Amino acid sequence: MLRERAPRVQTSARGAAPVRIGTRGSALALAQTRVVAAALEKSGVPVELVTISTEGDRSTESLASLGGTGVFASALREALVQGKCDAIVHSLKDLPTQPHPGLVIAATPKREDVRDALCARDGLTLDSLPEGARIGTGSPRRRAQLSARRPDVEVVDIRGNVDTRLGRVGVDLDAVILAAAGLSRLGRLDAITEYLGIDGWPTAPGQGAVAIEVRAGEEKSVSSLDHRPTRVTVDAERQVLALLEAGCAAPIGAHALIDDGLLFLSARVYSADGAERLTSSHALYLSDVTNPATELATRVARELLDAGAATLAPLGGGV
């Protein structure tokens, strides 16, 4: 039986102290953490959930003004460092690329759907929404992509949990754009009116994946959940972001996949208004290099910078 209570050390009936997993209290965070907890319990590891409040959950300010999606991770990481929990679960797209001293990502379970999804009134698609339609998103990348694809619509900055955002559709918004994986985890796939194809609409590095972070040296507690193909692909995507030194305000999409021993990586940098974009795509055989994710990310990032990506978006990288 999965327990959810305040953080404390307790010995289970089976004689082992449970792994205390820290999580944000939002419905989506709890849903994905419960999936992780269930997988651990299935392997015989007792689990206890510890709910942690973050500034990002308490504030109604835009993510950019709060310092980016990393605002969600900081409180979780502090709780882990202080011993209030033994592991924390992040949406990987919200996790800063800079590692936290003393902490490591011990597992990345198998990735879910990487795509963005449009949730519109009356079953409309992105192309069938009327001129002047109001579309909600809190993502600079999605804003740039919308401006490029539909310059005639109004993009509205929004915050709030998934249900709050969906509740505005048909009220003061014509549509919102959300991650398909999050909607799936919440059982809200019925709200989707269109999946946005990854080739023309690359998503955030790491989207669709979760990361389980622990204190260095304690990786064994959750390492059984690591899915190697997911680890390699999200590492490649996130290393592009790190090499470009791109923050939350940088409209960047990236996608990697493994097929027949080949690792493919494509990344795209947009201008804030979506009027310009640069794309770089490379591939290599996994068996050809020691660290394929790093090698491929370096090629992609260097090509983007050489092509002038830093003039399009707020970047600071140099490789």
Rank of each mutant, 00 (worst) to 15 (best):
Ala209Leu: 05
Gly317Glu: 07
Arg24Gly: 07
Val300Thr: 02
Leu265Trp: 08
Arg143Cys: 14
Leu129Asp: 05
Asp260Ala: 04
Thr203Arg: 00
Gln207Cys: 09
Lys110Ser: 01
Arg185Trp: 13
Ala107Ser: 07
Pro109Glu: 02
Phe264Val: 07
Leu103Ser: 05
Val47Asn: 05
Leu126Gln: 03
Ala301Asp: 02
Val153Arg: 04
Ala191Leu: 02
Ala133Phe: 08
Ser128Val: 10
Arg228Asp: 09
Val50Phe: 00
Ala297Ile: 04
Leu315His: 12
Leu118Pro: 08
Arg121Pro: 13
Glu55Leu: 14
Ser65Lys: 07
Glu218Phe: 06
Asp113Arg: 05
Ala38Pro: 09
Pro130Tyr: 04
Thr97Cys: 15
Ser287Thr: 13
Gly138Trp: 11
Leu49Phe: 04
Gly123Asn: 01
Gly15Leu: 06
Leu40Gln: 11
Glu295Cys: 02
Gly136Ile: 05
Thr230Pro: 05
Glu55His: 12
Ser62Lys: 07
Ala267His: 00
Arg5Lys: 13
Arg268Met: 03
Gln98Asp: 08
Ala37Pro: 02
Ala148Thr: 05
Gly253Pro: 01
Ser12Val: 04
Asp94Gln: 02
Arg185Val: 05
Thr233Asn: 08
Arg134Pro: 13
Ala246Val: 09
Arg141Gln: 02
Glu61Asp: 15
Glu112Asp: 11
Pro46Tyr: 13
Asp86Thr: 11
Leu76Asp: 03
